[in-house]
Simulated assay, not measured.
Amino acid sequence: MSIRHGLLTLLERGPRYGARLRSEFESRTGSTWPLNVGQVYTTLGRLERDGLIAQQGADRAGHVLYALTEAGRTELRAWFARPVERMSPPRDELAIKLAMAVGAPGVDVREVVEVQRHHLTEAMRTYARLRARALAPAPRHRDEVAALLVVERLIFRAEAEVRWLDHCEALLLRLARAAATEPPPVGGRP
């Protein structure tokens, strides 16, 4: 998730201070990815260092306002124009866990799969409640529509992960059956 570009997008609408950016980011993403206000200010510092934003005075309450620079607008347009990279995916803890569980002494891989499946079922229930709340009444404001898109992405991702777990379980069962029918190794070695 690009907090950096998310903040740039929010600043395109006009100058904002850090806590307001945090609130707007969370509203736009349906509060599914809470931000620490320190993380926001650290990111703002980097964006300012990189010339993508600049301080633009303060509001009546004394909050420092940040505004998008022309370089920031250019970066934002470039971000929206390029695809999200999939050739170098981030490490996936679940895939690593299952890969390590295969053959690990005392680990039942199918139990690891089942625990994750149960967790995903609970997560999907939570996401379904969030979706129902977002749909009743029909979303009208851009933040409501944006939050609905994020929640539906989480639902689709969880559903895909459940399908992958089903596939892993079926593959493990097939391999276990095949191993059970193999003749014993020659010379008594595994």
Rank of each mutant, 00 (worst) to 15 (best):
P15C: 05
P34D: 01
A158E: 04
R153L: 05
S23V: 05
Y66Q: 05
E169C: 15
A134Q: 04
E169T: 14
H167G: 09
L35W: 02
P34F: 02
E85D: 07
T43V: 05
A128N: 09
A158I: 07
P15F: 06
A101G: 06
P15Y: 05
S23P: 02
Q116M: 12
E70N: 12
R177I: 12
Y127L: 12
V40T: 00
Q39M: 04
L8I: 06
F80E: 11
M100C: 10
L68P: 06
Y17I: 00
H167F: 15
R20P: 02
G30L: 00
L154N: 06
G51A: 08
R91Q: 06
P184E: 10
A61L: 07
R133W: 08
E26K: 04
S27M: 11
R22I: 02
E161M: 13
S2T: 07
A146D: 06
A54L: 10
D59T: 04
R177K: 12
R91A: 08
E70L: 11
L173K: 14
R4I: 00
E75F: 08
K97N: 11
V151L: 02
S2K: 01
E26Q: 09
V186T: 09
V107H: 11
L135G: 00
L35M: 08
A180H: 07
P190R: 10
R157F: 04
L94D: 12
A19T: 09
R163K: 13
A58F: 05
W164M: 08
R77Y: 05
E159G: 12
S27N: 09
L173C: 14
A178K: 11
I3Q: 04
R133Q: 10
F25K: 01
